[in-house]
């Protein structure tokens, strides 16, 4: 096997470039290297101006998401050996504005997260002296899958609806709302309903299912959205059949 591997990396400098272009780098091929190791090697030895986000190298921080051969991936968990000897294309995440090289702007994503009120909402906080809110393993299990999200934005890069309609709330934000809706300690489902039941939120989703396929933490945002559609539809039926029922 060859002892080097070629990486084609998307470069964009806002000072000089009108559009991104690809630049090739030759890096040592090592079995235990992931794409992020190769990027770090390039930055250390070949071109210090290469710009990308990374932190933990172990699939927890969610900052090294990029397109590897067009597929949204955490580069810290994508081994060179899975692509060698062919060259590897590394691009910034799809559907986001590019700030520089492999760095995208996540402002829109953060705003959408905030809109979902992703915190425990209580009608009345109980005083600290009464102790913590207890939860059984079953109650934890009801939302645990949706709480595994690391905000890596791979699902937004995979979602064609978000690409076509930037107003769409997107997979992770809706899954996060569900994570709190299904939490036995939370009482804020009614506060989140007006945001979630917009056309730009759950009803914009066409169940492409790509968000779930690319999710490195198996959160299943597509499932979360459909499940909430069912909840919202049943709510609607209830409000038609029993308009007097307290909302």
């Amino acid at each position: 096997m060859a002892d080097t591997i070629k990486l084609e990396i998307s470069r964009y400098s806002p000072e000089t470039d009108a559009a991104p272009h690809f630049q090739s780098f030759e890096v040592p091929f090592r079995r235990d290297w992931v794409v992020l190791d190769a990027l770090n090697y390039i930055k250390d030895k070949q071109d210090g101006s290469l710009t990308y986000r990374w932190s933990c190298r172990m699939g927890i921080c969610g900052s090294c998401g990029m397109l590897v051969n067009g597929e949204p991936k955490l580069t810290c968990a994508t081994f060179l050996a899975d692509y060698a000897p062919a060259s590897i294309r590394v691009e910034p995440l799809r559907n986001f504005p590019i700030v520089r090289d492999l760095v995208i702007a996540m402002n829109d994503f953060m705003r959408k997260f905030q809109k979902m009120k992703p915190w425990l909402i209580r009608k009345e906080e109980k005083p600290v002296s009464e102790g913590e809110y207890l939860q059984t393993p079953e109650q934890l299990d009801a939302y645990k899958q949706f709480s595994m999200c690391i905000n890596c934005m791979l699902c937004y890069a995979a979602c064609p609806v978000y690409g076509l309609d930037p107003l769409f709330a997107g997979p992770a934000a809706i899954a996060l709302a569900q994570r709190y809706n299904l939490d036995s300690r939370d009482q804020g489902a009614k506060d989140r309903f007006p945001v979630l039941s917009q056309h730009d939120a759950i009803w914009g989703c066409t169940f492409v299912g790509e968000c779930t396929r690319v999710c490195p933490k198996h959160v299943d945002p597509a499932g979360a959205i459909q499940q909430y559609k069912l909840t919202a539809a049943l709510d609607w039926v209830k409000s038609v059949v029993m308009p007097w029922g307290g909302k």
Binding site: F193, P194, V195, S197, H199, W203, A233
Partner: peptide
């Protein structure tokens, strides 16, 4: 988005 919760057609 503080829209009134009116009957929506989407559901």
């Amino acid at each position: 988005d503080a829209q009134p919760t009116k009957l929506r057609i989407e559901p």
